[in-house]
Design a protein around this nucleic acid. Structure first.
Lengths: 232, 232
DNA sequence: ACCAGCAATTGATCCAGATCAATGAAGCTG
DNA sequence: CAGCTTCATTGATCTGGATCAATTGCTGGT
């Protein structure tokens, strides 16, 4: 069940059940609550890395390089934890796709405090490795794939996170625009749109309005994505 | 200074200085030593995630999808720690670029044991976030850039890790082939080669034989990479 | 020091996806 | 619920990088 207070939700979702009260209040005082408004930047790391917990809504982590085009590095949904890196070769911004509430921490004091409870550090480490695994899969997709493979892979990935399984398909409501998808896959909007059309023509998915989508045959779509068969 | 025994090197490089003797011997008994031979696969995760520490030599983490082409996810050099994920949408293999020695662990018991020392978990978490940061930068490069930007970004990245600074340039010995670079950047060998030639013609780098390279002007190369200027 | 074999470069052609351009739907707003 | 704005789709053309095809040049082995 969803808790109303975003910080409580953070505690419930991230912290191990037996966490010390004092530690919790330490985290509470480190935290800052952010009301993220759809479409506008919610958080940019100036100087030091930031941690954000998505209590509700959804966000995109965007990297800015020179020139206009942006690269969407990853999407986050409710209960996701994301590290917004301070400026390196690129500058990163966290932007809300759907309005919601975030809990923000400065990374350094956050990790310092987390160090006091080994169970918590392990959880954070596991989350980090999960993000790393996601990012690697994304690299593979970006580097190797054709437009169709990219889109198919993207949709499958998304379906795992926010889809409702029904039979051998899945349906979901895309919270991001075609532009966001294009920026995430390193494609143009037009190519994304054309690939949607092609997959629709091949009966692999149906679209309802702009954001409703049903993946009709996950198995077949997985083949399109160039993924290895489930039992190799 | 380099320690001779690879496990000692692992301890020296990864473990916090005050680590308990018993814990160390626990890790020693979990560990397996691998003699990695140049060009051949040193490690594939069958069933469960694996951790590898590169005591000497260098490696590439490769993802295999359907069809011939491979995607190099990341390169590792001495003292790097890498998680080789068990099969997900893609299968991963760790392959030696230069012969050397690795220390391998099963990830689950490794993390379980690491949990006994909070200092160690923090170190592992930091390493994970570092890898994540690397991977994200790579995603940005793969997604957004032209061939020239990709190669320039790749070389700069590599220079930070294995280059010898000299004046405003850096020189290094590339341990990987043009094919490896191509597979890492999602380009063909020919395009990589052409970009080398172009950057050479523009006096941004010099090559010595197949693997020697000097980046003559890091600042200018950084512009080519489409990176944000150092002081924005 | 020479040669065999692979790696890298260079050139010619082709094509997937970008870009440019116009039209058609959704979703808001008053 | 009409009109406006933004987003998505579709079409036409262009181009960067892939692919095909020779050379050329390292480098390791004998």
């Amino acid at each position: 069940m969803a808790l109303h207070d975003p910080f409580d939700r953070f505690v419930d979702e991230v912290m191990p059940p037996n966490t010390d009260k004092d530690l919790l209040s330490g985290f509470r005082s480190l935290s800052r609550r952010i009301n993220a408004v759809k479409g506008s930047p919610a958080l940019t790391a100036n100087g030091s890395d930031q941690i954000a917990f998505v209590a509700s809504g959804s966000t995109k982590l965007v990297a800015h390089a020179t020139r206009g085009r942006e690269q969407v590095v990853s999407f986050q949904f409710a209960d996701d934890l994301v590290l917004v890196p301070a400026r390196t070769a690129h500058a990163y911004t966290l932007t809300a796709l759907e309005s919601g509430e975030l809990i923000q921490f400065n990374a350094d004091p956050f990790f310092a405090l987390a160090g006091e409870q080994s169970g918590l550090v392990i959880i954070l480490m596991e989350r980090a490795y999960e993000s790393l695994a996601h990012c690697r899969e994304k690299s593979v997709t970006l580097g190797r794939a054709t437009a169709q493979e990219k889109l198919a892979g993207f949709l499958l990935n998304l379906a795992e996170r926010i889809g409702d399984r029904q039979g051998r398909g899945t349906s979901m409501t895309l919270p991001m625009s075609r532009r966001d998808i294009a920026d995430a896959l390193g494609l143009s909007i037009e190519t994304v749109s054309r690939q949607f059309t092609m997959l629709r023509d091949q009966r692999l998915l149906e679209t309802i309005g702009r954001s409703g989508i049903t993946l009709s045959d996950l198995r077949a779509l997985s083949e399109r994505a160039g993924h290895l068969p489930v039992n190799a």
